[in-house]
């Protein structure tokens, strides 16, 4: 059986909220190392890869590998019943029809229990190759969100160019052009505000802003976001979570003009 207890329901609520508009039905693959989810959006432009490591739960028990086929819209309805600070426990049998969710509020001695019906999801297993990225940029997640939202007001696409001097986001639209450049910046007192650039070669790629703005829903999960780029490969947008867990998004580039 599976039994996984999260100190705060908030984590799962935010993860599901960040991915539910990209992917609808997906398997939560549970094994002794944790709970993983990998799903591509219908248009094959974006891929979500979530890993909640066993260390993120306390306790965590998973006797047999189990795939929990979940409709995220339905899961969202159930999670709405959980307060952010509630203790959340996920439970499932070895061959489950339902996922049992328990929300505990220790202050008010309230215990809520929900059973979510599971579905059989025949999901293609895709391997993500290990990639040595030419550029890795770490920046505040709210800054990244702001840039994407601001540029989307002008255009559907953004060009991202990295050099050792900085990272430039630029777009061209019907009403005009826009560009935001961030230079490497270290703030000892507020490391969350740092912009760090590691570069082995300059990169220039174009992406759909609609997807990037969608990924930015995860900004509440982590103060910083990591962008990994190489020419002609998908962008990796990573939000690191506590306990070496993560929420990653991959986005296929656009080519040509």
């Amino acid at each position: 059986m599976l039994e996984a207890r999260l100190e705060q329901a908030d984590l799962l609520k935010k993860v599901v909220d960040a991915i539910k508009d990209l992917v609808q039905d997906c398997n939560f693959d549970c094994n002794d190392s944790g709970v993983a989810l990998q799903a591509m959006d219908n248009s094959h432009v974006a891929l979500v890869s979530m890993m909640l490591k066993a260390e993120s739960f306390s306790p965590y028990r998973c006797d047999r590998n189990v795939a929990l086929g979940v409709n995220l819209t339905s899961l969202t309805k159930v999670l709405r019943a959980a307060q952010n600070e509630d203790i959340l426990t996920l439970k499932a049998e070895d061959a489950p029809d339902v996922l049992n969710l328990v929300f505990e509020n220790t202050d008010s001695d309230r215990l809520s229990e929900y059973d979510l019906k599971l579905m059989d999801i025949d999901q293609e297993h895709l391997g993500i190759p290990d990639t040595e990225y030419a550029a890795t940029i770490s920046l505040p997640s709210v800054e990244f969100r702001r840039i994407c939202v601001d540029l989307m007001a002008l255009s559907e696409s953004v060009s991202i160019e990295t050099s050792k001097d900085g990272i430039k986001f630029s777009c061209a639209g019907d009403i005009g052009n826009g560009a935001v450049t961030l230079r490497p910046n270290t703030n000892v007192e507020k490391p969350d505000q740092n912009v760090e650039i590691e570069l082995t070669e300059p990169v220039a790629l174009t992406f759909s802003l609609k997807y990037l703005v969608n990924f930015c829903k995860a900004a509440g999960l982590s103060k910083t976001v990591k962008l990994c780029l190489s020419n002609e490969v998908p962008l990796l947008v990573e939000y690191a979570l506590a306990g070496s867990s993560y929420l990653r998004f991959y986005l296929a580039p656009k080519i040509g003009d």
Binding site: M40, L126, E156, S157, P234, L251, A252, K254, D257
Partner: peptide, 14 residues
């Protein structure tokens, strides 16, 4: 406008 590539091509089916 630029052409959107398909992510499917990048990932190995296992």
């Amino acid at each position: 406008s630029p052409f959107q590539l398909d992510l499917y091509n990048y990932f190995i089916k296992s």
